[in-house]
């Protein structure tokens, strides 16, 4: 299925979590990898249950708690990489890498209360840093072309458009050199 093109150049080596920073609203935000606990899962359910449906992208997050739980169970699986931005014990944002053949699909969501505060950029960099130290080589995503804020964010961290032919833009980034045997 994959005939996606990825840049030959490796993206900047962003720092892996844990890390913390002060956002533009003076809140202290901590970014940590998901610890696999039920408590953190429940905090995520709460964030997505309160998520503004107008910020949904291609059907996710789903709109009902049972569907949110099904979806989260799938992407919080141990072969996925998940990073959460915390304001105390409240989830401000969540970013995830889900395996897809030899690459990973990325998605990121920042709760409406925490948008436009610089959290998305820090969160996605932390996720890419986490991916890099976990051996992820290639990452792709799709984004609605009208969503300029998101497209801008992805470009800022190094994503390049790989397919502009469909309703959604497809963008890709390379986090590591290909292994030698594939190098050719």
């Amino acid at each position: 299925m994959s005939n996606r093109t990825f840049s030959d150049a490796v993206a900047d080596p962003y720092d892996a979590p844990p890390l913390s920073f002060t956002d533009r609203e003076d809140r202290t935000i901590e970014v940590r990898a998901y610890d696999g606990s039920d408590e953190e899962m429940e905090a995520l359910v709460e964030m997505y249950d309160a998520f503004d449906p107008s910020d949904r992208a291609q059907g996710i997050p789903p709109g009902r708690e049972d569907r949110i739980r099904d979806w989260l169970e799938n992407i919080l699986d141990e072969d996925c990489l998940n990073v959460i931005a915390w304001d105390g014990d409240e989830v401000a944002g969540h970013a995830t890498l889900v395996p897809d053949g030899d690459a990973y699909e990325l998605a990121i969501f920042v709760h409406q209360t925490y948008q436009r505060a610089g959290i998305g950029t820090r969160l996605i960099k932390a996720l890419l840093g986490y991916g890099r130290v976990s051996g992820v080589e290639k990452v792709w995503l799709t984004v609605e072309r009208w969503n300029r804020a998101a497209v801008g964010l992805y470009q800022t961290v190094g994503f390049e458009t790989s397919d502009a032919e469909s309703f959604e833009l497809e963008m890709t980034i390379r986090l590591a050199e290909p292994p030698d045997e594939e190098g050719g």
Binding site: A57, Q58, I60, P62, V98, D100, E105, T142, S166, F167
Partner: peptide, 15 residues
């Protein structure tokens, strides 16, 4: 179809 992430992707024909 849905992507591994669960995103809905509309095919070329439907488009």
């Amino acid at each position: 179809e849905t992507s591994p992430m669960g995103k809905i992707q509309i095919g070329n024909i439907a488009e």
